[in-house]
Design a protein around this nucleic acid. Sequence first.
RNA 1: GCGAGAGUGGCGGAACUGGUAGACGCACUGGACUUAGGAUCCAGCCCUGCUGGCAGGAUGGGGGUUCAAUUCCCCCCUCUCGCACCA
Length: 829
Amino acid sequence: MEWKYSPKSIEKKWQEYWERERLFEVREDSGREKYYLLEMFPYPSGRIHMGHVRNYSIGDVVARHLRMRGLNVLHPMGWDAFGMPAENAAIKAKTHPAKWTYDNIDYMRSQLKKLGFSYDWSREFATCDVSYYRWEQLFFLLMYRKGLAYKRSAYVNWCNTCQTVLANEQVEGGACWRCDQPVIQKQMEQWFFKITDYAEELLDYTYKLPGWPERVLTMQQNWIGKSFGSRLVFPLESGDGEITVFTTRADTLFGATFMSIAPEHPLVTKLCRGKSQESDVLQFIERAKQAKRSDREADLLEKEGIFTGSHCINPVTGLKIPVYVANFVLMEYGTGAVMAVPAHDQRDFEFAGKYGLPVKVVIQPVDAVDPPKAEELTAAFEEDGVLVNSDAFSGMTSGEARDAITAFLAEKGLGETTVQYRLRDWGISRQRYWGAPIPIIYCDRCGTVPVPEKDLPVVLPTDVALLASGASPLPVHEPFVNTVCPECGGPGRRETDTMDTFVESSWYFARFACPGHDTGPLDLSRVGYWMPVDQYIGGIEHAVLHLLYSRFFVKVLRDMGYLDVDEPFLNLLTQGMVIKDGAKMSKSKGNVVDPDEMIEAYGADTVRLFCLFASPPEKDLEWSEQGVEGSFRFLSRMWRLVAENREKLLKAVKYDGERRLPTHLLDLHRKTHQTIKKVTDDIGERFHFNTAIAAVMELVNHMYQILESPPGDDELWPVFREAVESMILLVSPIVPHIAEELWHSMGYTESVLLQPWPKWRSEALQSEEVLIVVQVNGRLRSRITVPADASADQVQRTALEDPRIREFISGKTPRKVVVVPNRLVNIVV
RNA sequence: GCGAGAGUGGCGGAACUGGUAGACGCACUGGACUUAGGAUCCAGCCCUGCUGGCAGGAUGGGGGUUCAAUUCCCCCCUCUCGCACCA
């Protein structure tokens, strides 16, 4: 055995050994308890970054630990391989996205292997493999059949830089989530998945996922945005038609003095037709539509509107009120029309002030004597209160009135209570090449025709010439586009949009359970064993996006009979970012640390150890080269402990806990068992790897302490051997290479992975004497040592007899004495 | 604006159900070994005072509950994240 720890000479050896022995490959085994551990799979961008290293190190500790605890652990890895960077890189480097992607996968796989992660590589796949995305096309067809996939013309988020459409979830603060450029609104024909059909269930289950972080659930709840309200009908003054609004404040209906509708509202052109203001209105609409979404969202856009020239009738007052087009009304939410109540809505209040519209107070605060006067209002009163100026409804509370007014209108067919969601359908069309083709054919005679299942897959052609603009080459790829209509046999044209790559990541976790299955997407006999994922680990950035889509998709697949679970991920751990010099590591900031260089300099174990030790997983991790060196130093200390004492350790027989020991060895024996308990709890229950590591460091320090003053004791080496072996087993999930090497150097021939996780004995945790803190009036004054089994009375007596304590009490009689067993005594005088 | 989370030494962070605040590591200081060490080992290391041992003050600030508060409650300040004209 080398005297010096040198990771280079051991890491590769053990990686090859694990692979040769197929130690990470698993099969379903109904006789064993399963555990499905998954980390978010990476996009093959070229190289692994520190965020990945951290994510996968956390997962690997859990996987290795639970294997030693006897569970049948599925721990797979694959590639989220479709996506735009491949296209952009291919254009730049004059290569093909497929080649670029698969080359990156090869390199990144080698990086992951160098880090020693315990993946079952036999299950690996990439989502751009035809054998994967073909099943996604089948899902699309089944969803199409059920009306869950549909096409419509809609105003959508368009990113000019990426030359494609984005889903609402993919627009962050009005900018593209990928390239950060402003997004504009564009009307296009688009395919949607009807996620809104599942809004209620998606929301419902956010209250049934105790293993998820509260804030992720809150974010999803906000995103779904359920609100209870009413749909109310305002007939047009002209008599031919009506405007329906959604409102959560039906109680304020008597105060609705005008109407605001969205520029995109279908009635707008009709309402201004033939009126004197027609051309002004049309101009206004054009301007409003062109406004960037980023401005609209950032509240930069001034609130503006224009009178359409038409009126509608307030259904309870019977008064005619003007209809305005307003740039802040969103067509996508509710009905695209808002009843404006300036006295009780701040936005309407400002709008009314600007255009000289009437303000009518209909709610007064509960404790007010008189209703406030409209002309004295400086701001809208938006809270609930008591109704005034509202005919028969006056005197009701807001809550009562919401129901009563809606019911009153419902009788006339002019209203109903309803539930409104903020969530909108998931737009999945992407005008890009490197994605899964949408299996649809357009025929002049038959219209939109789904590709028959027997004709799947629709293979993405590889013989394409990429366009420098980034626009998809598919529409101009004649052999792909031109096809035959499956219904009439006449000429047909293929859909050239591809699917959003979030579709692939919405079911990959299920496919890992049966990766080679080729007669269907999922083999329920195997998938049923492994699903759901017991623990999912990844970045918080997917709190809404990927994690919401996946939940939706699982419910759809369940309803199709492909899955028998309601939710994909039982427990979720969202790990923090890797930070350097106070900022997230990124190329543009120039603060990236390359994992390869770190592995080269310190070895994989050190890199893993540092990632786990520097902070708890859910917090951000500040990268520190000195911290990395500290981690390396600790591994060296462990190494030397074994290397320098190997002969003596090998000769000793592990202490069995039976014979009596001198105090200092009993201390070590106890420390060993305390450490086993602490590490087991920290890794297994709390995921606090940093404190688990700290505990092992304490044990190692303790061992060095004992070696400082060699007592020449016969019992030393047996007890030491117990401590050393425990140490090796406890760190093995964290730093597997050095653990494997040390384990074998202790004379074992079987992998450390196959050892049972060490157990602590509770009797070994007990010490004969305990230290008790003595306080007087809550201030620490002395420490006493008492037998562990001393009664409260005895402890109290000993404390009161303590000379220091007597001094502090100085003759006074204690008013009260609190005794906390094994902890402290507090004397109140 | 709304929602969530967080504020502890020079730094990263401990303290699981209220019970010795600062485990463990980094940095720093001193010493040992050494031709030398940026290797290793040992010791010190929150602040203030006489400086041995103590005493007092410290967990963003203020108040409260309690024998006892980093931990529970109220108010305020700061930071981070998410949502943001949602009717």
